[in-house]
């Protein structure tokens, strides 16, 4: 029977091994789906009136035409916002942000960037984020907040006028929204690449340990 029963120490040892708690995993993957829907439908909307001298390839857009893209964008936004808000509240309330992402010191970031570029940055303990990770994860949360705020300003420029004022005016909010998307895409590329290079981090985000 000993194999079926656990002592208190064993239980706490098992718990300690959990790298990503279940709420982080659920919200991470929900966010992943919402984010991809938002990006692909956002590209469709961008194509209707491009800000720069290029359009996104049709195969990487969602909705078929502007109207379809808008329907997807304004549906997926609820998933993104509700999930994102729950993530922020839980992250602050549980102290996870403080424990995992702070402190971020310039010397620490500099040291870890150098180590990363010379392939000397270890990932032995996945429960502790290095300074590059802390900076990127904290930074992408800020970008996430900015893209939602600039998006809301474009959606309701009269009703949420004070939000538009935060960015200057409506056209500026559009540019902010675009550059936040670009930052998220850049993050996504690095993030996915590193997750594939360190597969146990991907495993931790799926099964928790």
């Amino acid at each position: 029977m000993s194999s079926l029963t656990m002592t208190d120490e064993q239980i706490s040892a098992t718990r300690a091994k959990v790298i990503q708690p279940v709420w982080v995993r659920v919200m991470h993957w929900t966010n992943a789906v919402a984010m991809i829907l938002m990006i692909l439908s956002g590209w469709q909307i961008y194509n209707a009136s491009p800000l720069f001298g290029f359009s996104f390839p049709r195969e990487y857009t969602l909705g078929g035409w502007l109207g379809g893209g808008l329907l997807w964008h304004f549906a997926a936004m609820w998933l993104l916002m509700v999930n994102g808000l729950a993530y922020l509240v839980t992250g602050f309330a549980t102290g996870r942000f403080r424990k995992k992402l702070l402190p971020i010191t310039p010397s620490g970031v500099l040291h870890d960037v150098r180590a990363a570029l010379t392939f000397k940055l270890g990932h032995d303990d996945l429960t502790v984020y290095n300074y590059v990770q802390r900076l990127l994860y904290a930074g992408i949360i800020v970008v996430g907040v900015l893209i939602v705020l600039s998006g809301l300003s474009m959606w309701k420029p009269v009703q949420l006028y004070y939000l538009v004022m935060l960015f200057g005016d409506y056209p500026t909010a559009r540019y902010v929204h675009f550059f936040c998307m670009a930052a998220i895409c850049a993050f996504l590329v690095i993030h996915v690449l590193l997750a594939l290079l360190v597969p146990k981090s991907l495993r931790a985000m799926i099964i928790g340990r």
Binding site: V33, I36, L37, L40, Q44, R58, E59, Y60, T61, L62, G63, G64, W65, G67, G68, G69, A75
Partner: peptide
């Protein structure tokens, strides 16, 4: 127009592993 959009969703289907673009039910949603 919607269905044409659905056809370009191969990437999303691959990523999520489910067919989110069953176009008539997606449209209703």
């Amino acid at each position: 127009r919607f269905i044409a959009g659905g056809a370009s969703l191969g990437a999303l289907t691959l990523l999520t592993g489910c067919d989110v673009v069953d176009s008539s039910s997606a449209e209703e949603m």
